[in-house]
């Protein structure tokens, strides 16, 4: 039996010190993913640093109008927060489309970003998986890959990032605040989560000992509208086959701001910079939107079972942008 020691941190400093000081350590938030993976033998930590008592459970408005989401704010509380619902509907909608009511009641903001892929091969310790055991191979590459990536994957890993929240955070240019033994830093969420390349075991750029303390949402451009949409295999408690988060601002019928991100397509939320650039300064006619999305998705490389994702994502995004254009 592998013993696990448990530390209940009373401060951020204590948490990062406890995490950095020992061997294989994991922060414990809601535990909704970590504990599952421990039972499956996928995660085998030696130390659990419980951070749920840290004073990181508030949603606070910053002087510059930004919204700072504490890392331990529960998903349910986050989605229901009046400021979030009012100013960032895309984020609230994304949270509510994830998991189930019971899971959202315990899962945390920081934990949501750090959840692991639901690739079935990753979750089965008897199967090869470079993310779990670097160098062991990728069973999904030629296996059952219906749910896997079409963008940004590598021969080493074709997993997707499962979070809905992260997709919305990518679209609103959220920034992840980290505390660590060497001090703090802030990283845009789109850089925080990474593509697999040849180190698929690293989901994020977080360093040993570092702790997510907050996610900061910058103010959205005045007059912008936002929305999250997700396609899934059942109406609740299913991961995205594809999803879209979008923030749009029109001035005189012309796109003056667009944040567009896809979920379910890649190892991290896929910020559609190419489509954004194509539409910025243009009228978002259906034809222009289609051209922009085609340009974005041209680099998709579907696997055996998941070619459907490309057209699904394109149509979802076209629908979301169309509906936002109608209301902007």
């Amino acid at each position: 039996m592998k013993p696990v020691s448990y530390v209940r941190a009373r401060s951020v400093e204590e948490a990062t010190a406890a995490h950095a000081g020992r061997g294989e350590a994991r922060y414990l938030g809601g535990g909704t993913n970590l504990v599952d993976l421990m039972k499956l033998g996928v995660e085998r930590p030696e130390v659990l640093v419980d951070i749920t008592r840290l004073p990181l459970d508030q949603v606070e408005e910053q002087p510059d109008g930004a919204l700072r989401l504490g890392a331990t704010v529960r998903n349910s509380d986050l989605a229901a927060h009046p400021l979030l619902r009012d100013r960032y509907p895309v984020v609230s909608q994304a949270v509510l489309s994830g998991a189930s009511g019971q899971l959202r009641n315990v899962a945390t903001t920081g934990g949501n970003l750090l959840q692991r892929t639901r690739c079935a091969y990753f979750q089965d310790v008897s199967k090869p998986c470079n993310k779990r055991v670097p160098g062991s191979g990728c069973a999904a590459l030629d296996g059952v890959n219906h749910d896997h990536a079409v963008l940004g994957h590598s021969p080493h890993c074709v997993a997707t990032h499962p979070s809905d929240l992260a997709v919305a955070l990518a679209a609103v240019d959220a920034v992840v605040e980290l505390a660590g033994p060497g001090g703090g830093r802030a990283v845009p969420v789109t850089d925080f989560l990474r593509l697999p390349e040849d180190v698929p075991e690293r989901d994020t750029v977080i360093s040993h000992g570092e702790l997510i303390t907050a996610v900061v949402l910058p103010p959205l451009p005045p007059g912008s509208v936002s929305r999250y949409r997700k396609a899934r295999e059942r109406a609740s408690y299913a991961f995205a086959l594809a999803s879209v988060a979008a923030v749009l601002r029109l001035e005189d019928g012309v796109v003056s701001h667009l944040g567009l991100a896809f979920g379910g397509l890649a190892h991290r939320p896929w910020r559609a910079r190419r489509a954004e650039a194509a539409l910025l300064g243009a009228r978002p006619t259906p034809e222009a939107v289609a051209r922009a999305l085609d340009a974005e998705l041209a680099e998709a490389v579907p696997l055996r079972d998941n070619a459907y994702k490309v057209s699904l994502a394109r149509d979802l995004a076209a629908q979301v942008l169309g509906s936002l254009t109608a209301t902007a």
């Binding site: 639901r118 079935a120 059952v144």
Partner: peptide, 14 residues
């Protein structure tokens, strides 16, 4: 799973 003959992702999440 063609390679291993496993019923893949057969729990109530998958």
């Amino acid at each position: 799973d063609p390679a291993s003959g496993a019923f893949l992702g057969s729990d109530l999440a998958g």
